[in-house]
Every structure is written in C-alpha cells, then in structure tokens.
Design a protein around this nucleic acid. Structure first.
Length: 632
RNA sequence: GCCGCAGUGGCUCAAUCGGCAGAGCAACUGAUUUGUAAUCAGUAGGUUGUCGGUUCGAUUCCGGCCUGCGGCACCA
C-alpha cells in the first residue's frame, strides 16, 4: 500500500500499512496528533487508509486540532452530565471559535455555574480513564433505536441523509459526524465557562435548552493564557471603564437610554467634529430632520407596517406620530423639497440623527446596544452611472476613518434574497459593482448570499478590536424601495424625470457603539486628541508652586488643550497615581526646578521617563499629537 | 422577549444555621509641606433594588415587579 505522508508525518518505508504507522506515531508521541487530514479532509486517526491516500497529521496546537479537541470535549462534558443528571437529554454540542458548548435539556434540574465544579470533576475522572472514541456507521433505523429516548437527536436524525455515524466513549454514545481525538485522555486542559439559555435549533419558537460553554487547550499554559485574556476583556469592558473614567451612565429610570457625562461628551464631540471635517471635505451636506414625524410618513416608508413593534409612538392632538427609528424618510423629504438636475448629482446628505428603537430588554448591553443612539448617517442620491464611483469613494472614506483608530476590518457583501423588489438585472449589476469595489479596496471580503435586505444589496463592515472580537459598524446599503415609495426623481438631459439610486451609509454606525468599541480597544487610554483630559498638572508643593502651575494651566487652556490641575494637599505620588488611574496621556510636574528654568517636566502615560521642556516646546508637542491624531 | 444568575453606604466587597449590617477606597474635618503608582488621625454616610408573604424576629426563606449580568432570539 502506498500512502503519502505530508508535513509532520513520520516518514516510513514504502508499503507500510498507514494504520500501523499511525499507531506507531501514537506510541512515540502519544499526546501529539489528535486527528489527521486524509486527502484534505479531516478524519479520525483510527480511519483506515487506502492506497494513494495523502495524509497529514493534525496536531492539537493547530486550528483544526483545537476544533477537534474542543468538539471531543463537548462529548466529554455530555458524558459527565449524563452521569450526574441521568434525566438530561442532549441537543447539539459543537466546537466554536474559542471552545465548545453543549445544549442540554436538564428537565426539572436547574444548572448554574456553581455546578461546574462537580461536572468538571467527573470530566477529569473520565479523561483519566482514557476511554477511546469509537466511530460507528449505522442505518437511520438503528440510529433511531439508539437515540429513542431523546427527541432532539431523533429530530436531528430525521433530517440527516445518507450514512449516520455515532461516536462512543465508554458508556456514552452520541450522534456525531466527527472526527474526534483518539481517546478522552487527550483532553486534559479544559474549563467550563458559563451557562446560558439557547433555543433548540436557534429558533425562538422552540423550547429553550441549557447551554454550557467551555474551552479546551492542549496545554495548561495556553488555557491559563486564555483565561487571562478573558480577565483582560473584563477589565477593558466599556461598561466598567465608562464608570471608572466617568464617561457615561445608564439610569434605571431609562433602561437602554444612555446619559453622557461631561468627559464622555468630550469624546463624542471630538468624534463628531472629526466626522464633520472629513464629510465636508468629501462634499457631504449636513442636515437635521425632526425626531417626531407623523404616522402617514411612516406608512409611506413602510415602517408603520413592518417596524412598528420597534418604534415608539405617540399622539399629538389626536393624530398618530412616531419617534424616528431611522433618518431615511427625513433625508428623502429633504431631497424632494428641491428640484434636482442630473448635473447636481450625486447629492450627499449627511445627518447625525438621534434615533430611538425599542430593542428587546435582553438585547441591551452598555453602549453596544441601546434604545437611543446617534447614527452618523448619510443618504446619497446618484445616477446609476455614478454608483460605482460613489461606492468606491465611500469605501475610501471608511478606510481612512478606521485607520485613524487602528481598527482592522473585514467586509461582508449580502446579496439578493428570495423576497426582493426591483429589477433583477439592476440587482445583478449593483452586486457586481459592490463586489468590484470590495476587490478594489484590497480588504478581505466575503459574500453572504441571499442576506441582503428586500430593497437592495449591502456591504457590512465588521471591525476587529484589539481583543480579536468583531463588531458591525459601517454599512453601505443600496435602496431600490424608498426612492420609489417617495417618488424621488431628478431631471435628466432629456428633461425627463428619472428615479435616482439611493444609498444609505454609516461609518461609525452608532456613535454610542463606536465609543464603546474605542473604549475597549484603547483600554480607556484614549489617544491625546480624544482624551477627555489631555494634561494633568501637579504642583510639587501646592502652596509654593500653585501660581506657576496656574499660569501654565492658563497657557494650555488658551491653546484649547484640555488641562486640569490637581493641587490637593496630597503627596506627589498619590496625585500621580490618580492621574495614571484616569489614564490621562500627559502629566506635568511643576516644582522649584521648573519654576526657576521656566520649564515643565512631563511624563507620558505608561512610561516612567521624566522629560523637561520649555512650555512652548511642550505645547507644540501636544498640538502635534492632536493634529496628527497620534497616541501621544 | 426567553433561559439561568445577581442586586448590601458614591465605588469594590463582607456578614456561619434566620438573631444589634461591617471593611477598604472615595467624601468631609484636622494634622502633615511632600519630586513621580496610596502620609496619618478623626467624622459622617444604610428603610440591604422594590412590593408583598412566612416568622417572635428576614440582607438571609418564599412570591410578584424593576434593573443588571451571561447567553439565545433580534440587531447599529
């Protein structure tokens, strides 16, 4: 038999039995490979090989190995649960990006993280027994017999086609495609992380099962590293930092409606003024439209029918009104207010629109998900022949903005759904334009077929923060619906009325969410241009050096630099500590030395160096940091 | 909205089995005159989210509601 070994495989003489070779490798390196790739497809190590197969071992340190290990660990969890809770019925238990979960119907039993210790103990015990994972192919009927007591597995089997495979370790058998690690002994460094409810098959009409999340690594160090990352995420949580740094709060009197504190408002205003600057440069016209508009308008737009559950409504003099959940109708009324020639297009209308949406209570999450937020919205009306350039222009702007904040992103193109309006040809054409623009941008992009809105295809921009998590912020959506409903038009070169193409787009998405992302991404240590306080001034001896410090403070303020003095009757170390805790980029220390030489001594957040400069030099240093949007 | 968990001075947390609600930080007052991550002492601060129930007695046990947290569903 001829088997070709790739990568990390031990080379054996021709004609050797691949199965034996693998066994030998296991003996040599018992804990290494967890699976193998046979002709590119992921398989159990125990899979028998055929003549000519190309084989590559999958090590637990590889991404595929991580997935296999975690998938197996989900089975181990299920086995342990089946011992401790004999009534438990199992749903799905897959590996996910950072670990695994298993959805379990515990019947009457209620599970909380207090039960993890006992479950983990049982898992450890079963891992120690080193039970082999045995794969078995069965017919549908046999499978139904095996899982007769479990309605979830039965339902799943009913949906499967072709061969059904089961995996068994010890007394526990599960429906599964595999592959798995050779035996439970390969699972050593795992931890259960959280419990949650999850609908069976992700459908809110179905029963809710209990989901247990966990993760499994190939070494204790890596597991601990991951737990450290989780801790770090908690420390960088914008809800915690927002409280500590005094940026915003949400009152019980207004769930989901954020209050911006003075320091948070500075952040918001800085973002807005940056937004204005670049949009003015790019030919956007800023408008403001009313927050409350009549029911008739929302009937034309279709929101009254389709979005009503998410809208706050009110009555004024017995007439129905709604608080805007989106800015589009206002922008369209503004477009329609004046007559447009084909020569005037594109018309780019921007609006920082404060919108209200009734989000489900369980969806609320700090600034990431709120019920009132400011969209950095823009609606662009253009001719079809201008569409491609417009989209490229928007993407150039997006790229510029995200770069300023050091956020990397990927793009998702959503295409025509089954339920669509408009001409199919124009859908095809605009999807092609969006795809070309993505390629042109040079950024990673993927296609989400059929996920576009009924009114047009879209590009979503998913930002990646420093912790590796992604958030949707920017979006560019083509709209073939609203211009039609509102009878938008321009006059073309023949004097005819023509319906323009309309684009919705946001860069930040929601300024609130964007502030949340920035807060976490910077860990609260904002770059100088955004920092609510840019300079903290500390007189060494408040009584002696206050006058000089106040003079420097006044000079900084005169230059528009956000500076604060701490002349409290505390030791310098104490005041320095507070300045660092508030993550202020520059701290100035002013004492005898500085007073005599007319200088300032500064220290940069996160650094210990003490640098002395003349006041003028220091001011230019900061002005330069602000102008270039550099960290310091 | 759904499943599970939680709510104690401004903040972070403690209080055994149901038995007088406590600490650190912050605040305030005073002392200290300080050169780069916490000077010392004192004072004040609470209807334990809220409403109801059980009990001689509830922060503690039970129920309703509110809010938050972890997810799910939904979504910027």
């Amino acid at each position: 038999m001829q088997v070709k070994y790739k990568g990390n495989m031990v080379e054996l003489a021709d004609g050797d039995n691949g199965f034996k070779a693998i066994k030998q490798l296991e003996v040599e390196n018992k804990n290494k490979a967890v699976a193998m790739k046979v002709n590119g497809s992921l398989e159990d190590l125990s899979r028998e090989l055929k003549d000519g197969d190309e084989v590559e071992f999958v090590l637990p340190s590889s991404p595929e190995g991580f997935e296999v290990m975690n998938h197996s660990c989900a089975h181990l969890l299920a086995q342990a649960v089946s011992h401790l809770y004999p009534e438990a019925k199992f749903g799905y238990g897959p590996a996910v990006e950072e670990g695994f979960y298993y959805d379990i119907d515990f019947g009457e039993a209620k599970i909380s993280d207090a039960d993890f210790e006992a479950i983990e103990k049982e898992m450890k015990k079963l891992a120690k027994e080193d039970l082999p994972f045995k794969r078995n192919e069965v017919s549908k009927d046999e499978a139904l017999k095996i899982f007769a007591a479990n309605p979830y597995k039965e339902e799943h089997i009913g949906e499967l086609e072709g061969d059904i495979t089961t995996y068994q370790q010890g007394d526990f058998i599960d429906l599964c495609r595999g592959p798995h690690v050779p035996s439970t002994g390969h699972l050593k460094h795992f931890k259960l992380l959280s419990v949650a409810g999850a609908y069976w098959k992700g459908d809110s009409k179905n029963k809710q099962l209990t989901r247990i999340y966990g993760t499994c690594f190939d070494s204790e160090e890596k597991l601990n590293e991951y737990l450290e990352i989780l801790k770090k995420r908690k420390e960088n949580d914008h809800r915690r930092l927002g409280k500590e740094l005094g940026l915003f709060f949400i009152s019980d009197y207004g769930p989901g409606f954020p209050f911006f504190l003075p320091k948070g408002e500075i952040l918001k205003n800085e973002l807005i003024s940056y937004w204005r600057q670049i949009h003015t440069r790019d030919g956007y016209l800023e408008i403001e439209t009313p927050t409350i508009l009549s029911r008739e308008l929302w009937e034309i737009s279709g929101h009254w029918g389709h979005y009503k559950d998410n809208m706050y409504t009110t009555k004024i003099d017995d007439r129905d009104f709604a608080i805007k959940p989106m800015n589009c109708p206002g922008a369209i009324l503004t477009y329609n207010y004046s007559l447009h020639s084909y020569k005037d297009l594109p018309v780019r209308i921007g609006e920082l629109g404060h919108v209200h949406r009734h989000e489900a209570s369980g969806a609320l999450n700090g600034l990431f998900r709120v019920r009132a937020f400011t969209q950095d919205d823009a609606h662009i009306f253009c001719r079809r022949d201008q569409l491609e350039d417009e989209i490229k222009g928007i993407m150039r702007l997006f790229d510029e903005v995200y770069n300023v904040f050091g956020l990397s992103y990927r793009i998702v193109l959503s295409t025509r759904p089954e339920d669509y309006i408009g001409e199919k040809e124009f859908w095809d054409e605009s999807e092609a334009i969006l795809a070309r623009a993505c390629e042109h941008s040079g950024h990673e992009y993927s296609i989400n077929p059929g996920d576009g809105a009924f009114y047009g295809p879209k590009l979503d921009f998913k930002l990646k923060d420093s912790m590796g998590r992604t958030w949707q912020c920017g979006t560019i959506q083509l709209d073939m619906n609203l211009p039609h409903r509102f009878h938008c038009y321009y006059i073309d070169s023949n004097g005819e009325k023509v319906e323009p193409v309309m684009l919705h787009r946001v860069v930040f998405g929601s300024i609130e969410r964007f502030i949340g992302i920035l807060t976490e991404n910077y860990g609260g240590a904002f770059p100088t241009w955004l920092a609510p306080v840019q300079v903290k001034l500390l007189p060494v001896l408040p009584e002696k050096h206050l006058e000089y410090t106040n003079k420097v403070l006044a000079d900084l303020k005169a230059k528009g630099i956000r500076a604060e003095i701490d002349s409290s009757n505390e030791k310098l170390g104490y005041r320095m500590r507070n300045a660092i805790a508030m993550k202020i980029p520059y701290t100035l220390v002013l004492g005898d030395k500085e007073m005599e030489e007319g200088k300032v001594t500064y220290r940069i957040l996160g650094q210990k160096d003490q640098i002395s400069l003349s006041e003028g030099e220091f001011i230019s240093l900061i002005e330069n940091a602000i102008a270039t949007k550099a960290r310091f």
